[in-house]
Amino acid sequence: MTSPHPERFSSIAERVHQEAPQRYLPLRLKAPGAGMARIVYSTGDDANASIAFYLYGASQAAHRG
């Protein structure tokens, strides 16, 4: 069964890395489950953005201290 609403994400920004013209923002996900996300964006004439999610599942959350 799917939800009629998108899932809410909760995260902690691990760091921000800036290189002209790109920015990298890795996030440690807290909800809806354990994982990481990475946001990369660039500015300028060829502006673009990408988001990648790496979801580890419940078994990984049990191993985190």
Rank of each mutant, 00 (worst) to 15 (best):
M1F: 15
M1P: 07
M1Q: 12
T2C: 07
S3C: 08
S3G: 03
S3H: 09
P4D: 13
R8C: 03
F9L: 05
S10P: 01
S10M: 10
S11A: 13
I12P: 01
A13N: 07
A13W: 11
E14V: 04
R15T: 10
R15L: 13
V16Q: 14
V16S: 01
V16N: 00
V16D: 03
V16R: 15
Q18R: 12
E19N: 14
E19Q: 13
A20V: 13
P21W: 11
P21H: 14
Q22P: 03
Q22I: 09
Q22L: 15
Y24G: 04
Y24L: 11
L25F: 07
L25Q: 01
L27E: 07
L27K: 05
L27R: 01
R28F: 09
R28M: 11
K30R: 13
G33T: 13
A34F: 08
A34D: 08
G35L: 05
G35D: 00
M36V: 07
A37F: 03
A37Y: 02
R38K: 13
R38C: 03
R38A: 08
R38M: 13
I39W: 04
I39C: 03
V40R: 07
V40T: 03
V40N: 00
Y41P: 00
S42N: 02
S42D: 04
S42A: 14
T43I: 11
D45E: 12
D45C: 04
N48L: 09
A49Q: 13
S50T: 11
I51A: 10
I51T: 07
A52H: 10
F53H: 14
F53V: 01
F53N: 04
Y54S: 11
Y54R: 14
Y54D: 10
Y56S: 10
Y56C: 01
Y56T: 08
A58Q: 14
S59R: 14
S59F: 15
Q60Y: 06
A62F: 10
A62T: 07
H63E: 08
H63G: 08
H63N: 14
R64H: 07
R64S: 06
R64Q: 15
